[in-house]
């Protein structure tokens, strides 16, 4: 309860700070508009205002403060503008409309989930191989770790274009990028998990005369579950980032990445912010969903959380 109260208080402070920041951020654009409308502003010309500090301008022209939160194309939109845009583009638009965020969200989500599925599946398979084969462990594992220090997302535009040139387009290229990003966290986490049973437990299975497959299904796999879920949560967030970045080079067709890019081309800041928040809500939702699954499955398996 105390946590919820503190959380809400911090949230209120952040929102308040955001509203306050709108005033100095938007003041120059507002003053230019006011000057064009023939109002008295100080200093009078845009040239003089360009080098003036934002706070000085606010103090000199207090009448613009009240307009800071309802600018048409603000540098920083107010929270309620973003909320209204989110509401209008999700609930009030038809899902099939090109302007509906749900439509764009669905495009991004399908690429994310497909990629996440592929990446997780391959990652688990490779982890199983690494745990059971000494050669694979020694030759692949160092590279898997090194590759995590490399910004692989730089590959995204190339993957899109190369796949396009051999005739693959649409969902799959984005899914491949998403898969690529979720692959390595899963491999590293799963290897750690499959190795987590200690010697006592492994020895116990030997005294039971269990073979490797039995040891895998009855001991290693169950004890890897907490590690698996920890890396799945990292993986799905990475997949979403991959899918969004994968949408950038296709030239803004559909998806959250396209909304971001189109918004930045046309200066539609409210659109950027609403796409950003929609993506954030989606990411939080996916991670929360995995968290619920984790709790259910681990409880059922009797693992103490």
């Amino acid at each position: 309860m105390k946590t919820v109260m503190s959380f809400l208080a911090v949230l209120a402070v952040i929102v308040g700070f955001w509203y306050a920041a709108c005033v100095p951020m938007n003041v120059k654009g507002l003053l230019d508009a006011a000057e064009r409308a023939g109002e008295q502003v100080t200093p009078a010309t845009a040239r003089e205002r360009r080098d003036a500090g934002a706070f000085g301008l606010v103090v000199g022209n207090t009448f613009v403060v009240s307009r800071s939160w309802s600018v048409d194309r603000p540098r920083l939109p107010a929270p309620h503008q973003v909320a209204i845009e989110l509401w209008e583009t999700t609930v009030q638009k038809k899902i099939t409309s090109k302007r509906s965020l749900i439509y764009h969200g669905k495009v991004t989500l399908s690429a994310t989930l497909l990629g996440f599925g592929i990446g997780t599946g391959l990652g688990i398979l490779l982890a199983v191989g690494i745990v059971h084969s000494r050669v694979m462990d020694m030759s692949v594992m160092p590279w898997a770790i090194v590759s995590q220090t490399i910004p692989i997302i730089a590959l995204a535009p190339m993957i899109i274009v190369v796949l396009y040139s051999i005739g693959v387009q649409g969902l799959l290229p984005k899914a491949i990028i998403a898969a690529y990003l979720s692959f390595f966290p899963v491999v590293v986490g799963m290897v750690k998990g499959l190795r987590s049973p200690d010697h006592m437990k492994l020895d116990l299975l030997i005294t039971y005369n269990a073979n490797t497959a039995q040891g895998f299904w009855k001991l290693r796999l169950p004890s890897s579950m907490p590690y698996l879920f920890a890396s799945l949560k990292i993986g799905i967030a990475a997949s979403l980032v991959g899918a969004i970045v994968g949408e950038l080079p296709t030239g803004a067709v559909a998806g959250f990445g396209a909304r971001l890019l189109a918004g930045s081309y046309y200066g539609q800041t409210v659109q950027i912010w609403s796409a950003l928040f929609a993506a954030a809500i989606l990411a939080a939702g996916l991670v929360a969903l995995l968290g619920v699954m984790e709790r259910l499955i681990l409880n059922r398996m009797g693992v103490k959380a």
Binding site: K2, L240, A284
Partner: peptide, 23 residues
């Protein structure tokens, strides 16, 4: 502050923050 900011921080750590780039 710790009680209030940590959930915000944990939430933000999972977000696609790269998306703030255009802004």
């Amino acid at each position: 502050l710790r009680r209030g900011l940590l959930p915000v921080g944990n939430f933000a750590a999972a977000l696609p923050i790269v998306g703030t780039a255009p802004i």
